[in-house]
Design a binder for these strands. Structure first.
Lengths: 148, 148
DNA sequence: CTTAATGCAAAAATTTTGCATGATT
DNA sequence: AATCATGCAAAATTTTTGCATTAAG
């Protein structure tokens, strides 16, 4: 998400473009694989915008969620995390996670995994799937080596 | 999970079989599709065991999670929920969720969805998947009718 | 100038912990 | 009898909210 587009996007909706909002956006779109908690976002944004308050971070997160700029993710480590949403042409996001049960590292991967399954469910149950979230648990290369 | 097995299971591990633990077990294995929060479990258990405290419910949940009797699930409604784990022969659980974006109802389904994908990931990344969690978002039959 | 957003601090909500008491083995 | 689990209340987290102030359009 580039800053031009973001500014445009907020203005269209009558929302104001503030340093705090830009700061949170930059942190979240900064590192590719950042799955940050609210507190972590706060700590990073504060480096550049020391005046920001934690409440603003929470309010900004709520806003970004409503605007579908970010997704909430739950990696079962007891924290609520957030990451930028990446959408494909159809407005679906296919960003999934490989979670190592041993070291806890999280690897991301994209792709539309479940097309055939989704068709099957529509046929069988009449439930129309428009998005999905997949988490895979296992052991990464590194940890497998250490287990030998 | 039946009570005989549960009693046996706890005793083997040197854990005590208390009314509170039985109560929480009964609530969670009671209704097939119960995705309950800690508070909800507390409220239901209290009907039969009014003496139970909320702290005990939390401690029991932590215990059951450690014993892999239950799973934590996150349906993106801002609550942490729990449900009984159902395992197949290989010790994997394949219990997934269809979440209606309109009415919020949750439908469960079982099945091993991702076998081929998991093989592919092992080949490509060397990451060995042992379990997965899938959430599908969309619109249930009922809500589709109401949209017409 | 008008409206929206912020910071702060207080409040609410959620989860964990210490410790004396009570139940299970 | 020994140990483990519980209840209660207090503490630690995490998240939300009210309100006066500040910044954006």
């Amino acid at each position: 998400m580039d800053r031009e587009y973001f500014t445009q996007f907020l203005r269209e909706k009558g929302l104001k473009v503030t340093n705090q909002r830009i700061g949170v956006l930059e942190v979240l779109s900064g590192s590719e694989d950042s799955h940050l908690t609210a507190e972590e976002i706060y700590d990073v944004v504060r480096v550049r915008y020391p005046e920001i308050g934690l409440a603003t971070v929470y309010r900004t997160i709520q806003l970004f969620l409503r605007l579908h700029l970010i997704d909430q993710i739950n990696l079962d480590d007891g924290c609520v995390r957030y990451e930028m949403r990446t959408e494909d042409a159809g407005g679906r996001h296919h960003h999934h996670h490989l979670i190592c049960l041993s070291c806890g590292k999280v690897f991301s991967f994209d792709g539309d995994l479940l097309e055939t399954l989704e068709e099957y469910i529509l046929d069988r149950d009449g439930f129309q799937v428009v998005d999905h979230k997949v988490q895979l648990y296992g052991y990464c290369k590194e940890c497998q080596k250490n287990m030998e």
